[in-house]
């Protein structure tokens, strides 16, 4: 199956600031891709280009279409939740459903109403009367009722409490995602998406610094907890990062032979957060 998103030398400048510096990447169908990077790294710029919301240089096709010229057609197959609380505040829930049902050929009113049935949202409410969490529930209900091929989420759970955040991703996985769909998500709350991602793209200063599947990441990176007496030996293997806990050192290694590391101490699967911190060291310095 061909790539859902195909980018070659994708670039974008704002004045003299380079937001994206000739990046190449492919996103295959049926994946859940985490696009992760510090503030200002170019994540949102990349998403905007994919969604046809901004101009760019280079080559980019989404589902075989050029987002700049074919946005209306593209949006039949691509949904996005860009940030929380972008639903118009004046609209009533029922009007929002009517409107999307009216303009979107792949929207199912029944599905949407079924999702909303599990919430406290009523159709006569206006968006401005809803809490932030309820707005996201409504937006998710609208989006999940659309039988699209790509879903783009830009910080979808920012500012929500833990209950909303948990159910958000649970609903997405259990009721929406299948092998024909692709989800691209950016977030700072990496630990929450870690277990659902199939692929990881780290982006820093407009460049891609890591583009790998989660399996590859698990193969490549290892984390070892080392007693002080063996710390020097570990340092000699050129770790990505080192931190101290309870008098022991924790090292993160990239592509170092597992059997050698096992002699030094206790091995763990590294968390994405630790990997992220190690990779992005010095970003704001």
């Amino acid at each position: 199956m061909s790539a859902v998103v195909h980018a070659r030398k994708l670039s974008k400048k704002y004045g003299t600031t380079v937001a994206l510096d000739a990046v190449d990447f492919e996103i295959e169908a049926g994946r859940i891709v985490g696009l992760i990077g510090p503030n200002g790294a170019g994540k949102t710029t990349a998403l905007k280009a994919i969604l046809g919301l901004s101009e760019f240089d280079g080559e980019l096709s989404v589902l075989g279409l050029d987002p700049r010229t074919d946005r209306p057609k593209l949006m039949e197959q691509v949904c996005f939740i860009a940030d929380v609380a972008v639903l118009p505040r004046w609209i009533r829930v029922g009007q929002a459903i009517d409107f999307v049902a009216g303009v979107h050929p792949r929207f199912s009113r029944e599905k949407c109403e079924a999702y909303l049935g599990h919430t406290k949202i009523r159709k006569d409410m206006r968006v401005r009367e809803l809490s932030k969490g309820m707005i996201v529930q409504l937006h998710l209900a609208l989006v999940m009722a659309i039988d699209a091929r790509v879903l783009v989420l830009d910080e979808p759970t920012l500012g929500l409490d833990i209950l909303y955040r948990k159910t958000f991703y649970e609903n997405l996985l259990s009721e929406y995602f299948d092998e024909n769909k692709t989800i691209i998500v950016t977030t700072h709350q990496v630990e929450e998406v870690e277990h659902i991602l199939t692929d990881l793209i780290f982006i820093r200063d407009g460049r891609i610094v890591l583009d790998a599947s989660m399996d590859e990441v698990a193969d490549r990176y290892s984390e070892i907890m080392v007693n002080p007496d063996k710390a020097e030996a570990a340092r000699a293997l050129n770790p990505l990062s080192e931190r101290q806990i309870f008098g022991k050192s924790i090292f993160l290694f990239d592509g170092v032979d597992r059997s050698r590391l096992a002699e030094l101490g206790e091995m763990h699967k590294p968390s994405i957060v630790d990997l992220f911190v190690a990779t992005m060291k010095g970003t704001y310095a």
Partner: peptide, 8 residues
């Protein structure tokens, strides 16, 4: 951003 997420 919401209006632009629809095929219009």
């Amino acid at each position: 951003l919401f209006w632009k997420s629809l095929p219009v």
